[in-house]
Write a protein that binds this DNA or RNA. Structure first.
Lengths: 344, 344
DNA sequence: ACCTGCACTGCAAACGGTTGCAGTATGTTT
DNA sequence: AAACATACTGCAACCGTTTGCAGTGCAGGT
C-alpha cells in the first residue's frame, strides 16, 4: 500500500540502509547517491512510517497535554501556546481532558505517557504526592501550580496580587475585601497569602476576607451582598467572572462602581472589557505560559532540566474603569449608608 | 528498561505468542495459562509498546483534530466533545492549530495524517477543492461546513435563522436588519441565504442587509450606527459578539433595547447572559458536535461511512431580554425620532 | 608494491509486538 | 482401537525503520 524504504531502495538501485541514511543522516552518503535517493523518494511520495521509526528510536516525537477542562478559555489559550511551540520543535501534541476528575487523572496521564515523550499537566486539584509520583515515572512539567521537586511553570500570583493591592491603596482605599475562589485551588491559596501579607506591608489597612466562592458569575453575586455588608470600599475578586457577578449585584443593590465600591479581578478574560464599567484586572499571558512549558519539557527531555524555581511568567495590571479613588470616609452618601449600616 | 512480552514469557514460563494472545485475544488461551500470564503482566507493570503494536496492525489508535484557533471557545468546546468521545472509543487525540493560515493547513493535515487513522477538520476558509483533495487522501470528517462529496457535520444554519426570524415576526417586527459576518464564512453565507428566503416566506417584511462586519465586539459597534440609520426595529447579528457590540452602541446613542430595537445573536456564548439586557440567541451544542464528528469518523474507519447529508446537530432558540414586541410604527417616541431622523 | 586511512555502501540484527502455520496432547467418534 | 476433531501452545516470519559492523574501492604515504 504505502511506499516504504524498500521500494525506494529497489528503484534507486541501492540498499535500504543507504536510503535510510540518505533521508535521515544525509551527511553519511555520497552526494550523487543522496540526490538520487531523495529524488525517487519525492517522486514516489514517500512518507516514513512513524511507528516503525519510533519503535527503533524509542522516542515518539509527541508530547501530551493534560488539562481539566478544554472549554475553559484559560486552557484553550494554554493549548494554543503549547501546540505552536511543540510544532515548531517538531513535536506533535496529544491532548487529554480530565473533566476535572482527579480520580482518573493519574490513569489518564499514565495511559498518555505510553505514547509520548513527556507530558505537560495542568492540575489545580489532586494531591502533591500523586503529582510527585507521576513526575518520577515520566518527564513532566506542571503548569500553574508549584509542587516540591516537580518542574513547574507558574504566574507570580503573590506579586500580581500585590500590584492590585498597591493600585487600590494608591487610590486611597483603606477597607479592602477579598472574595476568594475555591479553597482547593492553588492560585487562590497564593492570593490569600498575599492578601494576608498586605496586612504586614500596609498596617493601616483594614482587610476583610469575604470567604470562598464558586469561580463563576453566580459566585460573584453571592459575594456581592457580603461585600456590601463588609463596608469595604474596594473588593478584589478571585477572578474576572466573580468580579463581574459582584459588580452586577452591586448595581442591582443600587451602588455605583467605582463611585461607591471599586472592583478588581484577575485573568483579563474577554468579558472584562465588555462589561460597563470595564473591569480593572490582571492579565496573565496564557499563550506564553503554554510556550514556556514546552520549552521546559523539551529541556528536560534533552537531559538539562530547569530548576524548579524561577519559571515565572510576567503579568500585567490592566487598569480600567471599575476602580477609582476611594470615597471619603466622612462624607457618607445615601448608598454608602446602606453599606455601612449593614456592615456594622 | 520497560517490561516487554518477552519478560513476561520468561517469567510465566510460556512463549511470547501465548503472552500476546493472553493479553489481546484472551479467548484463544487456556484459562489457567491466561490467568498466570495476566497476573505476571500485572505484577511487572507491563504496558504494551504502542509503536510496536501499531506497526504490525497498521492502525495508530489516534485521530487528529485540526482547528483554526484553539483560543476560540467554539473550538475549545468542540475539542472537549471530540476528546471525550474519542477516549471512550479507545482513541487518543492529536490536536493541531492552523492559526487561521489556509496556506499551511494542507501541509499540517497531511503531516498529521501520518500519525493518525483519520482527521476531523474545522476549516471555515480554504477552498472546496483543497478539502475534497484531502478527503480523498485520508478518512476525513469536516465540521461546520459542507463541501460536496466530503463527509460533514453541521448545524442547520438556515433553520436556526428561520427560528429567530419567526420569533421576531411573532413579536410584530416588520423592518428587520441583518448584520453579517465575514464574507468568506460558510455559516454567514448560509445566514444570508436564509435571510433572503425569509423575504419569500413573509412577503410583508421589509428586510435590510447592513453589510459584512468583523465577527467581534467592534464589528457590532460599527453595525450599530448602520442599524439605527436603517430604521429597523429588530436586528439579527452574525453572532453574539457582534450583537453585544451593537447593543452597546445603541445604548450609547440613547436607544433602548428592546424598547426601541430588538437584538438577537447566534452562539449563546457565556457573555450573552451576562450583558444587560441579556441576549436572545441561538444555542448550538458544540460539545455534541464534537462527539458526533468522532462518531462519523469512526464509522468511516470501520468502512461504513455516513452519507454526507443529514448529519445536522439540533439547535435551540434561547429567548432572553434583548428581544421584545415591536414598537408601534405610528407612535414614535423621542428616542426613536433620532433613529427615524437618521434612517431617512 | 604494500600498507593505511578514508569515504562510502551493504548486510543483518535489532526494536516489541502480532499472527499464520505446524505441532502436541487431549477428547470424541465410529 | 484407529481415525479424527478440538484446544491449546510454540516457532518463526513479519511490520518498516535504524544502526553497528564489516566490506569495498580508492587515494595517499612509505
Amino acid at each position: 500500500m504505502a511506499v516504504t524504504v524498500r521500494d525506494i531502495a529497489r528503484i534507486a538501485g541501492v540498499s535500504v540502509s543507504t536510503v535510510s541514511r540518505a533521508l535521515s543522516s544525509p551527511g553519511m552518503v555520497n552526494a550523487a547517491t543522496r540526490a538520487r535517493v531523495q529524488e525517487t523518494a519525492r517522486k514516489l511520495g514517500y512518507a516514513p512510517n512513524l511507528n516503525a521509526r519510533n519503535l527503533t528510536s524509542g522516542r515518539s516525537g509527541a508530547i501530551g497535554l493534560v488539562v481539566p477542562d478544554l472549554e475553559n478559555p484559560f486552557f484553550g489559550s494554554m493549548a494554543k501556546g503549547v501546540q505552536a511551540r511543540a510544532r515548531a520543535a517538531g513535536y506533535a501534541v496529544f491532548i487529554a481532558d480530565t473533566e476535572e476528575d482527579v480520580s482518573v487523572e493519574g490513569e489518564i496521564i499514565r495511559g498518555l505517557s505510553r505514547q509520548v515523550d513527556g507530558v505537560i499537566v495542568c492540575s489545580a486539584r489532586g494531591t502533591d504526592a500523586s503529582i510527585q509520583q507521576l513526575s518520577q515515572e515520566m518527564p513532566l512539567v506542571l503548569v500553574n501550580r508549584r509542587v516540591p521537586d516537580v518542574s513547574s511553570i507558574t504566574f507570580d500570583h503573590a506579586a500580581s496580587f500585590q500590584s492590585v493591592m498597591g493600585h487600590l491603596v494608591a487610590l486611597g482605599h483603606h477597607r479592602i475585601a477579598y472574595a476568594g475562589g475555591p479553597q482547593t485551588s492553588w492560585s487562590n491559596s497564593q492570593r490569600v497569602q498575599a492578601f494576608a501579607a498586605s496586612g504586614q506591608e500596609f498596617p493601616e489597612l483594614d482587610l476583610v476576607e469575604l470567604g470562598n466562592f464558586q469561580p463563576v458569575f453566580t459566585g460573584g453575586v453571592h459575594a456581592g451582598d457580603l461585600a456590601i455588608a463588609s463596608g469595604a470600599t474596594a473588593v478584589i475578586a478571585f477572578n474576572d467572572l466573580v468580579a463581574v457577578g459582584l459588580m452586577d449585584r452591586l448595581k442591582q443593590r443600587g451602588l455605583s462602581v467605582p463611585g461607591d465600591i471599586s472592583i478588581a479581578g484577575f485573568d483579563n478574560v474577554p468579558i472584562s472589557m465588555l462589561v460597563r464599567p470595564t473591569l480593572t484586572t490582571v492579565d496573565f499571558p496564557r499563550v506564553q505560559m503554554g510556550r514556556t512549558s514546552v520549552d521546559a519539557l523539551l529541556e528536560a527531555l534533552r537531559g538539562t532540566p530547569r530548576t524548579t524555581e524561577g519559571n515565572e511568567i510576567p503579568f500585567e495590571l490592566v487598569v480600567r474603569e471599575s476602580t477609582g479613588v476611594a470615597k471619603p470616609r466622612s462624607a457618607a452618601s445615601p448608598s454608602s449608608t446602606t453599606a455601612s449600616a449593614l456592615g456594622g
